[in-house]
């Protein structure tokens, strides 16, 4: 319980740090962000009134910084992240909500598959260390993982989407279909999900393979494995029931650290496949100079990662009794 509480406090501090970055970044930079936006949009000169309304939309005012900060926090507590420029007049929270489910879907599916497949390869590779499987699979996925995620995505898009035309090349479902509970709609979602998920799985596999393989190798050197062998237990029983079961602990610890990186990679994958998740929205917002949406998305993504980390911590106390006691 104490462990959980400590982590909770830490994640709250992290969330506060993200909020503070969000608040200070536009204000610390030289010049007026409103002027920057107008400067880059820069086609027609804006009237004083328009500049004033832009400043208001950005939450900028001449009030002292401390007061602005408090207003910012107060708005945040009410769930008010401002109005998106590029999706005007939709509030930022609403835009984030549309992207959230797609990012969640893609994230959960790719994470689930890469974790399961990666761990199985890691377990089996360590078990038959130096064997054919071990000499081919981990290096192969290491090599694949060396490519930048978005480059793999481009290649996949080109080969599977454009040349072979097996999968649709953009969006998360066929826009001609009406969202609802029927088969064709779900099939369309699955077809659209396939390529981004495939790339995300391929890119992340090596992390789990390496984690699990290393930790398996450590566990296999333990005396209780030798003991299990001496008792004449079946190989499968030793491999999964004795070795993998203990080796999985450090791997779960690594989970939290890599979540942020994995979500980061997903941003670019979503962009390449025009998959309308948070990452796609973020890059779109940057391109449109939609500052309120950009900041809201950064906050939303960070909050999501922190929440996932917290869930991993709770899971950790479930599977490792030592943490619960300590």
């Amino acid at each position: 319980m104490k462990f959980i509480l400590r982590r909770l406090v830490f994640y709250l501090i992290a969330l506060w740090a993200a909020v503070t970055i969000d608040f200070f970044l536009p204000r610390l930079l030289p010049g007026d962000p409103a002027a920057v936006i107008i400067g880059t949009k820069g086609t027609a000169a804006m009237t004083g009134e328009q500049v004033a309304s832009l400043r208001a939309a950005l939450g900028l005012s001449d009030a002292p910084l401390g007061q602005q900060y408090l207003t910012f926090l107060a708005h945040l507590f009410r769930g008010d992240l401002g109005i998106s420029f590029s999706h005007f007049p939709a509030p930022v929270t609403q835009v984030i909500a549309t992207g959230f489910r797609w990012t969640l879907l893609l994230g959960v599916v790719s994470l689930l598959f890469s974790v399961i497949i990666g761990h199985l390869i890691g377990i089996y590779g360590a078990w038959r260390r130096g064997g054919v499987f071990d000499r081919v699979m981990p290096p192969l996925f290491n090599f694949i993982g060396a490519f930048p995620a978005f480059f793999l995505a481009l290649i996949t898009l080109f080969v599977l989407g454009m040349t072979l035309k097996w999968f649709p090349i953009a969006h998360s479902y066929d826009t001609l279909l009406k969202p609802g509970f029927y088969w064709a709609y779900f099939a369309s979602i699955a077809m659209h999900l396939f390529m981004p998920a495939l790339v995300a799985i391929l890119v992340n596999l090596q992390v789990w393979i390496q984690n699990m393989r290393n930790s398996m190798i450590g566990v296999l050197a333990e005396d209780y494995i030798t003991m299990a062998e001496a008792k004449g237990l079946t190989q499968n029983n030793i491999m999964y029931g004795y070795a993998a079961r203990n080796a999985i602990l450090p791997s779960v610890t690594g989970f939290g650290i890599f979540l942020g990186a994995i979500l980061g990679g997903q941003v670019l994958i979503e962009q390449v496949f025009s998959y309308p998740g948070l990452g796609f929205l973020l890059i779109h917002a940057v391109g449109q100079r939609d500052y309120p949406l950009m900041q809201g998305l950064f906050l939303g993504i960070t909050a999501g990662v922190l929440l996932l980390n917290f869930l991993v911590d709770i899971l950790y106390t479930r599977i490792d009794p030592r943490v619960r006691a300590g």
């Binding site: 993200a18 970055i21 942020g260 990186a261 979500l263 980061g264 941003v267 670019l268 950064f298």
Partner: peptide, 13 residues
């Protein structure tokens, strides 16, 4: 713990 890619994109913007 703060995801680096979104932060990187925000900073670059």
């Amino acid at each position: 713990v703060i995801p680096s890619m979104p932060l990187l994109i925000l900073l670059s913007a």
